[in-house]
């Protein structure tokens, strides 16, 4: 069936409705992801006592390092915000620029987390050491995996914006990716205040 020429009005209407559906669906998806994190948090809290004679949070966590990670992530949220503002103004170059900065900050975060993990594993405090460490690595690692997926999505967005410009579907994807990115920030604040702070204090 040939469908080269869809009527523009019908198509635009369908696209607009679809974008709103997707925004709503994405909020619900974020809530389901929130359930995953909530359960991982709960598991972590239950398992903080399960150190099996191994190191505790106080032995392992370095608040300075964590503060650095936090800063990278918070600033990346701000730069994503700048990208969103630029997108609203239709400034394609600025969007691309801010997204690159955001991705770079994200990569920095992932590298710092990788360093933290490899350092812990090197001193014998890997995820197989105790129930506590299994829960720590899984919770923080799940967040890190989300950030990595987010970076991948930013790269895809860069390609789409460069190739197609800020068409309504592309702009809507950027909006949802922004939600995702800020959501990860909120989760990180939870990790900071439930994992690292009480672990050290």
């Amino acid at each position: 069936m040939s469908d080269a020429a869809l009527p523009a009005g019908l198509e635009a209407e369908a696209t607009a409705e679809r974008i709103e559906d997707k925004a709503f669906g994405f909020w619900i998806y974020l809530m389901t992801d929130g359930v995953i994190f909530a359960l991982l948090f709960a598991t972590y809290v239950v398992m903080t006592v399960g150190t099996a004679g191994g190191p505790t949070g106080a032995d392992l966590f370095n608040l300075t390092h964590t503060f650095g990670e936090t800063m990278l992530l918070l600033v990346s949220s701000a730069t994503f915000g700048m990208a969103s503002v630029a997108a609203r103004e239709g400034d394609r170059r600025a969007v691309l620029l801010w997204l690159v900065v955001t991705a770079a900050l994200g990569v920095g975060f992932v590298i710092m987390e990788g360093l933290e993990f490899s350092g812990m594993i090197a001193q014998g405090a890997g995820p197989d050491r105790s129930g506590f460490l299994s829960a720590f690595f899984t919770l923080v690692g799940t967040h890190g995996a989300h950030v990595s997926v987010g970076i991948l999505c930013i790269l895809v967005m860069l390609a789409q914006i460069a190739a197609r410009g800020l068409t309504p579907p592309v702009a809507s994807r950027l909006f949802r990716l922004g939600l995702f990115w800020h959501f990860l920030d909120i989760v990180w604040i939870g990790i900071f205040s439930i994992v690292y702070l009480p672990g050290v204090l």
């Binding site: 995953i36 991982l40 398992m47 399960g50 191994g54 995820p127 105790s130 129930g131 299994s134 899984t138």
Partner: peptide, 25 residues
């Protein structure tokens, strides 16, 4: 999803979410 992943991490990565001992529960 969470419970399946954690169980598989126990089984494959030697973690201790649900093991007897080693801090599992």
């Amino acid at each position: 999803t969470v419970v399946g992943v954690l169980l598989e991490l126990d089984r494959v990565a030697g973690m201790h979410f649900f093991t007897s001992g080693d801090g599992g529960n």
